[in-house]
């Protein structure tokens, strides 16, 4: 339901559904990344508050080390969730081309 993997220098590709049951695996993966990271979200269909929690925790850790998460190719649903939660102020978000 969710795959997350390295996609080249400073890029992590995430696809599928980042829901409560997939969040622990995503967290484990993201705990290993460092520096400025672009999260390629073009194939991320869905995110819940559990998924937001994973990204928030990662962002806090990376920002403290002068890094950070940038989200690219963000779908309509995912963008709505970020906007309604105010997370669009915390992450740099680049919407998917429509």
């Amino acid at each position: 339901m969710l795959t997350i993997d390295h996609g080249g220098e400073g890029v992590v590709v995430i696809s599928g559904r980042l829901d409560a049951s997939q969040s622990p695996a995503a967290q484990t993966f993201l705990d290993q990344v460092n520096g400025p990271v672009t999260l390629d979200c073009r194939k991320l269909e869905y995110i819940s508050s559990a998924g937001l929690g994973v990204l928030l925790k990662t962002q806090k850790r990376l920002m403290a080390a002068n890094g950070g998460l940038r989200l690219a190719g963000v779908s309509r649903h995912v963008r709505d969730v970020f906007q309604y939660s105010g997370f669009d102020k915390i992450f740099e978000i680049e919407p998917a081309a429509e």
Partner: peptide
């Protein structure tokens, strides 16, 4: 939920219901 807090003060707690009401 106060969604205007800076990063360090934000938590994911309580966000779920807030988002349900929005969406």
């Amino acid at each position: 939920v106060d969604i205007t807090l800076p990063l360090e003060q934000r938590t994911a707690g309580g966000l779920g219901i807030h988002l349900v009401a929005k969406m």
